[in-house]
Design a binder for these strands. Structure first.
Lengths: 176, 176
DNA sequence: GCCTATAATTTCGACATCGAAATTTTCGAC
DNA sequence: GTCGAAAATTTCGATGTCGAAATTATAGGC
């Protein structure tokens, strides 16, 4: 029976240091939150590398993917996009400026409410987004290679609990 | 027997959208990675709010906490700090400039290797760091209120597996 | 029908980060 | 001993983000 001795990760080393310096503290919350934070950064790094092949930055992918999965005709308002990407409206203006210049998205004034700006995928943008999301999912699959299907389900379930506690109910980071 | 129907979070909605638009894709990796990414951002937001009471930004806390838990005499080189915080050396120079101005840390040239810069906590900095870490852990405790102790352990264990897969072996984000 | 309150987006200024180049120091080859 | 390569930090220029102010458009009260 392979009673496996789990290896230590960076967070184990951190909590060990705290125990030495401040043994009065309960560091158990950071065993979870520290790992979420750390994993997020490392995963993001891999995602970025993966997209580099296509000359696309993660923040560009966020917008393209959000528009793609919104379904035909792939149009959302600036506000919807900014809350979906969890960035400020200012940041979104920036992103759209950039993607519009690249010819991947288009801006148009909403005919019904002219204070709204509708952003849509161009044909080029839609085709690129379709290719990107496939490549992206393949990359993510590799990043989780260390976990079985069951473990992924467990992990996803526990994280859902955390997210619901935190009041997750708005947009998204483009399926990352 | 409360057979609870788990609520949907933002990521459930995203994967549902993908199924509608691209039913050929296996979106299971993003059920995990999307949640890690999303949870990280929401947790970070709460941590930031929690530190605001003390007029400290998360990146400032990172440095102070890293120095504190390194143990007496609370001295590290710039390089050690930058890899611990997972930021570039340029970013670290910036952080230290700032904290030095606030009187929380001090710079000194390493007598043994003069190309190294040693950064240490001042007395004020050490006292503040001790208070901050207590407050910080209390805040994190609240953020995980939705999970039992067992669930936290499970979650931490699964995340450790992910981190080891990703090759986690260096510094840290200050125990976040 | 005006006029003000509200909504949505953009502009502006500040800021933390990064990568690359520059600077300073160390160390080894010769 | 001197010179050049390597190491550690800082400087520099560019970038993406944020919060707040400005801009433009809608809607309701009177």
């Amino acid at each position: 029976m392979t009673e496996q001795q789990p290896q230590h990760d960076g967070v184990d080393r951190i909590t060990a240091q705290w125990r030495a310096v401040r043994p009065d503290l309960d560091t158990s919350p950071m065993a979870v939150i520290g790992r979420i934070s750390r994993a997020s950064r490392l995963l993001e790094r891999g995602i970025k590398e993966n997209l580099t092949v296509h000359g696309i930055e993660p923040w560009e992918f966020d917008v393209l993917a959000t528009l793609l999965r919104s379904g035909a005709p792939h149009v959302l308002t600036a506000g919807e996009l900014s809350s979906a990407a969890m960035v400020s409206s200012a940041a979104l203006t920036n992103r759209i400026d950039h993607l519009e210049q690249k010819g991947l998205v288009e801006r148009a004034v909403d005919p019904a409410h002219r204070r709204r700006v509708l952003i849509s995928l161009t044909d080029t943008g839609r085709e690129l987004a379709n290719r990107l999301v496939e490549h992206h999912l393949t990359g993510e699959e590799h990043q989780l290679a260390g976990l079985t299907a069951d473990e992924r389900d467990q992990l996803a379930g526990l994280l859902r609990r955390v997210l619901l506690t935190l009041g997750d109910h708005t947009g998204d980071p483009a399926g990352r």
